[in-house]
Design a protein around this nucleic acid. Structure first.
Lengths: 224, 224
DNA sequence: CGACGCGTTGATATGGCTCAAGAGTGGTGG
DNA sequence: CCACCACTCTTGAGCCATATCAACGCGTCG
């Protein structure tokens, strides 16, 4: 019962608050490169990622970009403030989303369990962002990249024999803008991790973690 | 009816969810240097700053510190995730707080208006953190400091004739750890803004904004 | 008065940026 | 199937913004 392909979220018909879940929990899919919403758009919907990967970005007038987050399955995006979105959001790969209405989060009078789930997601978001602050403000480039791989490995790593394999759907530029670095530095740092035997790089976007403990100790800064 | 001085928030008696607001909206004050909570503490309370200034910090094992936020009147702190706090929180000046129970946020079955207010605060927090990301990841030291002063001036600036005066209750080290810089760089950047006539510095912790437009254009990066 | 914490300033070091060139990769059309 | 093009990734060389190390002034407090 998916709404296929390029249908925009805005095409979803509104339903009255009292309607049952079967209508409210609509699903949409979006294609790579397509925007789910833009900064400043009125925020009527909240999205849970069911499959795929989203990219949340902020852009300054002069073009400097910050990737705020990558949205993986289980993540919720589109929390509104002042009734609008505060980031751009697009898809890195074909992505399936469960659509909720903003009122599902903001008013408790509908589905209480859903309301609770969205709220918990917002609180988890705050916590995750606090981690990210430490990363952006106080970590070296190698610590940043190690932390990044560490988190991805835990969340979406696939076991490959003894090792953990991570597929990166984003470009080096995306990683750079997420970590507050340049693409060149990200590339060099990948090389550094590879040459020290901590990771192996299959195709550019496939990383195998050979020494998870070493990776973790770099990420935490126990190392130097 | 304030709970004075050093009484910890944990001393507040629990009330059943159905009890009226008069008990639930308790107020506490904490003194400078005293901790309201620490990272990892079980999070049973959420606090609204009524007066004063709080400091929210994260510390790495090797001592590196990131100031996550300063909590000014109107701000809400202590959003829990996994049932615990994820930052340390202490006071920079004597601070008065309205105490809410975690369940006031997490369950909608009590005071609906309060629930709503805490929820909005959480969403505003997410939005504010997104701004901060851009600052940490992509701005130069002078842009960071200009943004910081800009935000403070808007929120807590006092009009002083034609100018806007901001009192800084935090040290240079706090500002540095908030902006992802060192105290030396913060100090030098203050000097730079002062020498260019954009701000004046009265006592160390009192800044007068002489050229708000110039400050803003630096903060936004319209400048270079 | 002395000691300590904080802020400023100077000198030097360096991590990550910038600029530049080339190598890999994927898509497209002939 | 191959040639070409566009785009991404990698690597190198040099530079610059910010960190680091160090000295000193100033105010506060015991």
């Amino acid at each position: 019962m998916y709404v296929t392909a390029t249908q925009s979220a805005d095409d979803i018909p509104s339903t009255t608050p009292s309607r049952p879940n079967i209508i409210r929990n609509r699903t949409v899919t979006i294609k790579p490169g397509k925007h789910l919403f833009l900064e400043g758009d009125p925020a009527d919907r909240i999205y849970e990622v069911a499959s795929g990967v989203l990219r949340l970005t902020r852009i300054m007038e002069d073009g400097r970009r910050q990737v705020i987050a990558f949205g993986y399955p289980g993540d919720t995006v589109g929390f509104p403030s002042d009734g609008m979105y505060h980031t751009d959001c697009d898809a890195l790969v074909p992505t399936t989303l469960v659509v909720h209405r903003r009122s599902d989060l903001e008013t408790a009078c509908g589905d209480a369990a859903l309301h609770q789930r969205l709220l918990i997601a917002a609180l988890r978001e705050i916590s995750a962002m606090q981690d990210h602050f430490m990363m952006l403000g106080r970590k070296s480039s190698i610590e940043k990249l190690a932390s990044f791989l560490q988190v991805l490995a835990n969340r979406v790593g696939e076991h490959l024999g003894d090792y953990n394999q991570v597929t990166l759907p984003m470009t080096r530029a995306d990683i750079a803008d997420f970590l507050g670095l340049t693409t060149e530095t990200v590339s060099r740092t990948f090389t550094q991790l590879r040459k020290s035997g901590i990771i192996a790089i299959d195709h550019v976007n496939t990383v195998i973690i050979l020494k998870p403990i070493a990776l973790r100790s770099i990420a935490e800064g126990d190392d130097t």
